[in-house]
Structure formats: C-alpha cells, structure tokens
Deep mutational scan, measured.
Amino acid sequence: MSIQHFRVALIPFFAAFCLPVFAHPETLVKVKDAEDQLGARVGYIELDLNSGKILESFRPEERFPMMSTFKVLLCGAVLSRVDAGQEQLGRRIHYSQNDLVEYSPVTEKHLTDGMTVRELCSAAITMSDNTAANLLLTTIGGPKELTAFLHNMGDHVTRLDRWEPELNEAIPNDERDTTMPAAMATTLRKLLTGELLTLASRQQLIDWMEADKVAGPLLRSALPAGWFIADKSGAGERGSRGIIAALGPDGKPSRIVVIYTTGSQATMDERNRQIAEIGASLIKHW
C-alpha cells in the first residue's frame, strides 16, 4: 500500500482519535458579512469528516447552483462504474471539434489522439474542462443518470439537468442544476469515506481534487503551510461562485467545507476574496 493510499485508508482512524471539535460562531459572522459585502445569498456548511456531524452552517438547506462543483460527483459516478466493471479508466475516447464547448483548455489539445477516461476526469476536476465533463456525462448516460446515481446514494436534493455550459445559467428560483450545502457536503463525505467506492477509487477521487489547479484564489489562499486540501470550485452566471473541499491540518483532511453564493453584482475577484476570507476565519478558529 502506498503512503497516499495509507493516508486515505486511515482518515477515519486518525479522526477518531482527534480531540473533540467545537464550532466557532466567528466564522458564521464572516459568512454573514460576506453576504453584506456581496449583496447576495451565501450558503455555508462545515462537517466533521469522521462523524458527519454538522459543526457550523448557514442557509444549509437553500438551493444554490452547483456550477462546476458537480464534476466531482460526476467522476465519482464514473469511478463507481469502474468498480462495477462497467468502465475502464484506460479506455480512450475520441471526439471532434464539434464536441468542444466553451472553456476546454485540455480537451482542445487532444482532438487528434483523444483522451482516456482517467485523463478526462483529471481534466474535468483539476482544470474544470467543460468538454471533458460533457464527454464523461455521455459515458454514464447524461445528466439524468448522474441525478439517479445521487438518488441511489441517498441524495434526493442534488440534481443535474443540463450539460456544460448551460448548467451554469443560475436563474433565480430555478431548481435545475442545483444542490443544497448540506446535501453536497453529505454526498461528498460519502464519496470520500464511505463504502460506495473502493479504496482505490476513493484515493483516485481525492487525488484529482488535491491536484486542483484553478481554485488557488479561494480556500487555498488562506491555508497555512502543512495543511491538506482537496477541492473543486465552480463559477456561473449572475454572480455565482462555489467551492467544495476536504481539508485539515497535519497533512490530512478532517472536515468537509461547502460554500456557495449566487445573485451578486460583485466582480469575480471580490467573490473570490470573500470566500478566501471565510476560509481564513475557519482556519483561525479551527
């Protein structure tokens, strides 16, 4: 067993022997301040990774656009098919120029040779490549099948209805392509620590998230040296922004954090800054 596999296998073990965790309302004060600064709703939840206990939450059962955070769930569904012998990570998928959609920095470079399922998941999570996500959605049967996968996990809230990039439209009061912070946090925890996926697939999923290259201005910008984070960000229309993450000190994750916002007129930089400040408060009061 590799060191990384050992780390993920012992996530519940280490967490069980940690000192009790206590909620700190100071972080919620910052979440509410972010709402004021952005002029928009902000949803927040913080779960203990081992027990699933909610440590703090704000608007945990209000719907927010998922945006690209759905790509972690998508690759979880792909990995479940791999575990069941219905898919192979090494299978190569070929596609054409007509398949390319807006923001496809990886797939646009491989029109000639195609990409493997493993490479597509890596591109979808680490670079948020939209064509990679659409190609992977095709392998599982489309958005409705991802929703069905989530329902089978016990998540009857999260739903995907459309493809990239239309799913980022974020129309107010439109339930399409949305989740709730509580539902997303619980589902992410199941994917990373539950028995739904094999140990190898859980490790692969967290490795992809740990290698995320496009979430630097968010929670990662607030992390002290030595902290662990595996995350996936999302951005959408109407001032929408979000991030889902597993993080913790001492090089291992111990909490799940989900943050979503929508309806702001603020710039992307300002949305990023507010999420980073929430992260800084979380870490300060850990």
Rank of each mutant, 00 (worst) to 15 (best):
P25Q: 11
E26F: 14
T27M: 02
L28K: 05
L28A: 09
L28W: 02
V29E: 15
V29T: 13
V29W: 06
K32G: 15
K32D: 13
D33Y: 02
A34C: 14
E35A: 10
E35R: 06
D36I: 03
Q37Y: 04
L38C: 14
L38Y: 12
I45L: 09
E46Q: 13
E46L: 15
K53P: 11
I54C: 04
S57D: 04
P60H: 13
E61S: 05
E61R: 05
E62P: 00
M67K: 03
M67Y: 08
S68C: 02
S68M: 00
T69P: 13
F70I: 14
F70R: 02
L73K: 01
L73G: 12
L73Y: 05
C75L: 11
A77H: 05
L79I: 13
L79F: 10
S80P: 02
R81M: 07
Q86C: 05
Q86E: 05
Q88P: 12
R92L: 10
H94M: 03
Y95E: 05
Y95I: 03
S96L: 13
Q97W: 06
D99Q: 05
Y103S: 03
S104L: 01
S104Y: 15
S104H: 14
P105S: 09
P105C: 05
T107R: 01
E108M: 09
E108A: 14
K109Y: 09
K109A: 07
K109F: 11
K109Q: 13
H110L: 12
H110G: 13
T112H: 12
G114D: 05
G114W: 11
M115K: 03
V117K: 03
R118T: 09
E119R: 09
L120H: 05
C121D: 00
C121H: 01
S122H: 06
A124G: 14
I125E: 01
T126E: 13
M127T: 13
M127E: 13
M127G: 14
S128W: 00
S128E: 00
N130V: 01
N130P: 01
A132G: 15
A132Q: 00
A133G: 04
N134G: 12
L135I: 06
L137V: 12
T138Y: 11
T139A: 11
I140R: 07
E145R: 13
E145D: 10
T147H: 08
A148W: 11
M153L: 03
M153C: 02
G154N: 12
H156S: 09
H156P: 10
H156Y: 14
H156A: 11
R159A: 13
R159K: 09
R159V: 12
D161M: 04
W163D: 10
P165H: 15
N168L: 13
E169Q: 02
A170R: 02
A170N: 03
A170Q: 11
N173T: 11
D174K: 14
E175Y: 10
D177G: 05
T178Q: 11
A182K: 03
A182Q: 14
A183M: 09
A183W: 06
A185V: 09
T186G: 12
L188W: 10
L188A: 03
K190A: 13
L191K: 01
L192G: 05
E195T: 14
L196Q: 11
L199H: 10
L199I: 15
L199S: 07
S201Y: 11
R202D: 12
R202W: 07
Q203I: 01
D207I: 13
M209E: 01
M209Y: 01
E210G: 14
D212A: 13
K213D: 12
K213S: 03
A215M: 15
A215R: 10
P217A: 13
P217Y: 11
P217C: 14
P217H: 11
R220P: 12
L223D: 03
L223P: 06
L223V: 10
A225E: 02
G226N: 10
W227I: 02
W227F: 09
F228P: 01
I229K: 09
K232H: 00
K232R: 02
S233F: 01
G236W: 02
S240P: 10
G242N: 14
I243W: 14
I243V: 13
I244V: 13
I244H: 01
A245I: 12
A245N: 01
D250A: 03
D250H: 02
G251H: 10
G251A: 10
K252L: 14
S254N: 11
S254Q: 05
I256D: 01
V258C: 09
V258S: 05
Y260H: 12
T261N: 11
T261F: 08
G263M: 06
G263E: 09
A266I: 02
M268A: 10
D269V: 03
N272W: 03
E277V: 08
G279F: 05
A280P: 06
S281C: 13
L282H: 04
I283F: 02
I283K: 05
